[in-house]
Write a protein that binds this DNA or RNA. Structure first.
Length: 156
DNA sequence: GCCAACGTTGGC
DNA sequence: GCCAACGTTGGC
């Protein structure tokens, strides 16, 4: 079991969109290091923190689980798609997606500012390698974040 | 909208 | 394979 943090721009696809549909194909990853993780490391059952970036309050907003491991992202073959890649062919796909099931929307998001203030979380990729869109989260950090979310929920 | 950090491209 | 130029990301 591995833990991840997937970044998304809520204007494009938010935790509310995921909650509404219940599942999604995590399409559009066009970065090689992120692609390699989707292809090689992200497995069915892995837990995924959903993070909103490029928005007013960047924050971890929810939780999902991987329902299908890496498979070709169809957008790369579609000339009408924003994610089209003319170098990709069905015989030789270049970009990979995974599928997610919605698990939870956190009643109180954990903001990037709060994460930065938390010494325990200082080694998160979110703090150190913020541009990577598919981030590995250590078990310790994941459990810490989930416990904190449950405390926040309980105090509401 | 700025801009620092980082990723990609392509000439050599 | 190096690296300069360029493009993108994303917090602020």
């Amino acid at each position: 079991m591995h833990y991840w943090l997937f970044k998304t721009e809520p204007g494009t696809f938010s935790i509310d969109d995921l909650a509404a549909s219940g599942l999604t194909d995590w399409e559009g990853v066009r970065n090689y290091q992120a692609r390699n993780r989707l292809r090689d490391d992200v497995k069915v059952g892995d837990q995924v923190l959903i993070y909103h970036s490029s928005c007013k309050t960047p924050a971890i907003t929810g939780l999902a689980e991987v329902s299908r491991a890496g498979h070709p992202d169809p957008g790369q073959f579609d000339p009408t798609s924003d994610y089209h890649d003319p170098r990709a062919t069905p015989d030789n796909p270049r970009w990979i997606q995974v599928s997610l099931n919605f698990l939870a929307k956190f009643p109180v998001p954990l903001t990037l500012a709060q994460i930065r203030e938390e010494p325990v979380l200082r080694n998160m990729e979110l703090v150190n390698r913020s541009r990577l869109s598919i981030q590995h989260v250590s078990r310790e950090d994941f459990l810490y974040i989930m416990a904190r979310m449950q405390r926040a929920e309980g105090s509401q």
